[in-house]
Simulated scan of single mutants.
Amino acid sequence: MTGSESPLINISDESTFFSFDPGLTPIAEVEQNVLVKIETKDCFSNQITSEEQLIMDIDFSRINPATGPVFIKGAKKGRCFSRQNSQDRSKTARGNSYHTGRRFPGG
Rank of each mutant, 00 (worst) to 15 (best):
P7M: 12
L8H: 14
L8F: 09
I9P: 04
N10Y: 14
N10D: 14
N10E: 08
I11P: 00
D13S: 08
E14T: 10
E14H: 07
S15D: 05
S15P: 09
T16A: 03
T16H: 02
F17W: 01
F18Y: 15
D21W: 02
P22C: 00
G23Y: 01
L24P: 00
T25S: 12
P26A: 00
I27P: 07
I27R: 12
A28F: 02
V30K: 08
Q32K: 08
N33S: 11
V36Y: 02
V36Q: 03
I38C: 05
I38T: 01
E39V: 12
T40Q: 12
T40I: 10
K41N: 04
K41P: 02
C43M: 10
C43V: 05
S45D: 13
S45N: 10
S45M: 04
S45V: 06
N46V: 01
N46C: 03
Q47H: 12
Q47G: 05
I48R: 06
T49I: 14
T49N: 03
S50C: 12
S50Q: 08
S50R: 08
E52P: 05
Q53S: 15
Q53Y: 08
Q53L: 09
L54F: 10
L54R: 15
M56S: 15
M56N: 11
I58L: 06
I58C: 03
N64M: 09
N64Q: 14
P65E: 01
A66G: 03
T67K: 07
G68H: 01
G68E: 02
V70N: 15
V70W: 12
F71N: 05
F71V: 05
I72C: 10
K73L: 13
G74R: 01
K76T: 15
G78L: 04
G78W: 02
F81E: 07
S82N: 14
S82E: 14
Q84Y: 11
Q84H: 06
N85W: 08
N85M: 11
D88R: 15
D88W: 13
R89S: 11
R89I: 15
S90M: 11
S90E: 07
S90H: 05
K91Q: 10
K91G: 15
T92E: 11
R94S: 12
R94Q: 10
R94C: 13
G95W: 03
G95E: 02
N96P: 13
S97D: 06
S97F: 07
Y98P: 13
Y98R: 08
Y98G: 11
H99C: 06
T100L: 14
T100P: 12
G101F: 08
